[in-house]
Design a protein around this nucleic acid. Structure first.
Length: 145
DNA sequence: GTTGTGACATCGC
DNA sequence: CGCGATGCCACAA
C-alpha cells in the first residue's frame, strides 16, 4: 500500500477516503471538502478542478463504503447532512446524536465545536497524504444557535 | 461517443 | 438563514 502520490483509480481513492474516515473519533465530524483536502489530487488533474469535485468523490466513496466505516461522521461544509434518502438522513442524525453530537434548531451541527482536527501528522505521512489546510487554524466564527 | 448525474463547495439574492 | 445558480470531474447507461 502506500506510496502513491497520485490517484491511480477510483478504488485507491475510495480506500484512502475510507481509511481517513475510520480515523474520525466518535463524537466528531468531518466535512467532505476537508477529507478531499487531505488526499493529493491525481497528477492528471488540475488541483483547482480536484478541489471543486474532490468532495463529490468523497461522497461517492461514502455511498459505497464498507460496513466498518463511520460514514455518519462525514457531513457537508454547512454542517448539514447531505445523505441521499430521507431515511439515511434520519439514521445519520440519530447515530451522531448517540455519539453526543448536538444538532441546532436548523438541523445543523456546530462545526466549530465538533469538527475533527484531522489525523495525526504521523498518520498522514504514513499514508503519504497532505496536511489538512485548517488543522491548526484557530476557529472563530459565528455561533448561529 | 453522447447524455445525465452525483452523500459538494461557494457565491449571490 | 434559505434557496438557486454555477463549477466542471469521472463514471454508468
Amino acid at each position: 500500500m502506500a506510496t502513491f502520490q497520485r490517484i491511480p483509480n477510483q478504488e485507491e481513492f475510495f480506500e484512502t477516503v475510507w481509511e481517513i474516515v475510520r480515523q474520525i473519533p466518535p463524537g466528531k465530524v468531518c466535512t467532505y471538502g476537508q477529507i478531499a483536502g487531505m488526499i493529493p489530487p491525481s497528477g492528471d488533474m488540475n488541483p483547482k478542478n480536484y478541489e471543486a469535485f474532490g468532495a463529490r468523490w468523497v461522497g461517492s466513496a461514502m455511498a459505497n463504503c464498507p460496513g466498518d466505516v463511520p460514514w455518519q461522521r462525514v457531513i457537508n461544509s454547512q454542517g448539514k447532512i447531505s445523505v441521499r434518502g430521507e431515511s439515511g438522513t434520519e439514521t445519520q442524525r440519530r447515530l451522531l446524536e448517540e455519539e453526543g453530537v448536538i444538532f441546532n434548531e436548523n438541523g445543523k451541527v456546530d462545526l466549530k465545536r465538533y469538527r475533527w482536527s484531522g489525523p495525526s501528522i504521523e498518520w498522514l505521512k504514513a499514508h503519504h497524504l497532505s496536511l489538512p489546510p485548517d488543522a491548526d487554524k484557530p476557529q472563530q466564527a459565528q455561533f448561529p444557535i
